[in-house]
Simulated assay, not measured.
Amino acid sequence: MTLLKSLGGALAAAVLTTTAWAETPVLRASVLKFGTVNWELNTIKHHGFDAANGFDLEVQGVAGGSAAKVAFQGGEADVIVSDWLWVARQRAAGHDYVFIPYSKAVGGVMVGKDSSAQSLADLKGQKIGIAGGPLDKSWLILQAYAAKTHGVDLEADTEQVFAAPPLIFKSALSGEVGAAINFWHFLAKMEASGMRKLVDVSQAASELGLDPNTPLLGYVVKGDLVRDNPDLVNGLAAASRSAKELLASDDAEWDRLRDKMKAKSDAQFEALKAGFRAGIPAPGPVDEAAAARMLELMVELGGEDLMGKADALPEGTFLSSGS
């Protein structure tokens, strides 16, 4: 009888433990192993912002963005990081994905400290290194900006070299290319290494009538998760905001993260910290009218190759505050 009571007690305890564990949903995030989003995700885990918002964040590092998308689309991950234009394209193709703002940080054009270039017009005849491919969104915006402000056809008047961000970074520092278009964190390192910013994408976007405060990058989840477990999705958004508030104000938190940032000098470290902080979007919903204008420009510049069937902003692209 005593044995039965003990077994019964153990079973009851196991059931309670399992129930308690089951009540804390796990959110699997598939992200680039060395991407800057890891700084925020690490902050969320370190300070328990996930637990405080009712979920357990599990970070899965992958080698590339395409691997993250495969994991997400195949059900092996619950959330990835991508830009909302990709989400809009997917929604137009019938995939129910939803975007939660993460960052408004964008790239720009860097030249060597000894370069005589003062505008994009001065890059005629030069070689430009571009992180990504011919449909890279920054490259498209900069082409439109150059045409509007300087009457320059950057694609025709320059030689383009398309490669991964680290290769463009090295080519720019070595002088193999006369100018480089790269992601913001590589630009921060380039500037810290003595290169000079010629124009950034946010400036170009403003000249084209776009709102540079529209967050381009964000967490992407599936619509059924939003409907079936809105507390989990809103918990992710809240945890992200808590981490951003800490990173925006606490230098000690950056000191804790420094080893993970791969900064090779104090100048690089400070540039990365400043760049991340500058990219923190304001709280509140995305301005969908501003986003619609950006999508229209992307359709005009990149056509169906870039935006697929998305010729207007699909309803439900952004997580609404009432979700």
Rank of each mutant, 00 (worst) to 15 (best):
P283V: 10
E300Y: 13
E300G: 07
E296D: 15
P285T: 07
L295N: 03
P285W: 00
M294S: 14
A290H: 04
V286K: 04
G302W: 05
I280A: 03
V286Y: 09
I280K: 04
A310T: 06
A289Q: 15
M294C: 03
E304R: 14
G284F: 11
G284E: 09
K309E: 12
K309A: 10
A310H: 10
G279F: 13
G303D: 06
K309F: 13
L295I: 07
I280C: 00
P283T: 09
A289N: 15
R293I: 02
L295A: 03
G279Y: 13
E296C: 00
R293H: 07
L301K: 01
A290I: 00
D305F: 02
G284R: 06
V286I: 11
R293P: 02
A289S: 15
D305S: 08
G284D: 08
L295M: 09
P281N: 02
A292N: 11
V286C: 06
L306M: 09
E288K: 12
P283E: 11
E304T: 14
G284Y: 09
E296M: 08
D287M: 07
G308N: 04
E296G: 13
M298P: 05
G279K: 06
M298S: 07
A290C: 04
E300P: 10
A290G: 03
K309T: 10
A289V: 15
V286R: 08
A291C: 05
R293W: 09
G303N: 09
L301S: 01
V286S: 03
D287F: 14
L301W: 05
E304W: 07
V299F: 12
R293D: 11
G279W: 12
V286Q: 04
E296T: 15
A278L: 10
R293A: 07
A291S: 10
L301H: 01
G308F: 08
L297M: 06
E288A: 10
E304Y: 13
A310E: 12
A291E: 02
A292I: 09
A282D: 14
D287Y: 13
V299K: 13
G279C: 05
L301N: 00
L301E: 00
D287W: 14
A282P: 03
G279T: 08
G279S: 09
K309Y: 12
E304I: 02
A290Q: 02
E300W: 12
P285Y: 00
E300F: 11
P285N: 06
P283Y: 14
I280F: 13
L301F: 04
A291Q: 01
P281D: 00
G303M: 09
G302I: 07
L306V: 04
R293F: 08
P281M: 01
G308R: 04
A291H: 05
L301P: 02
A292E: 14
E288V: 11
A290Y: 00
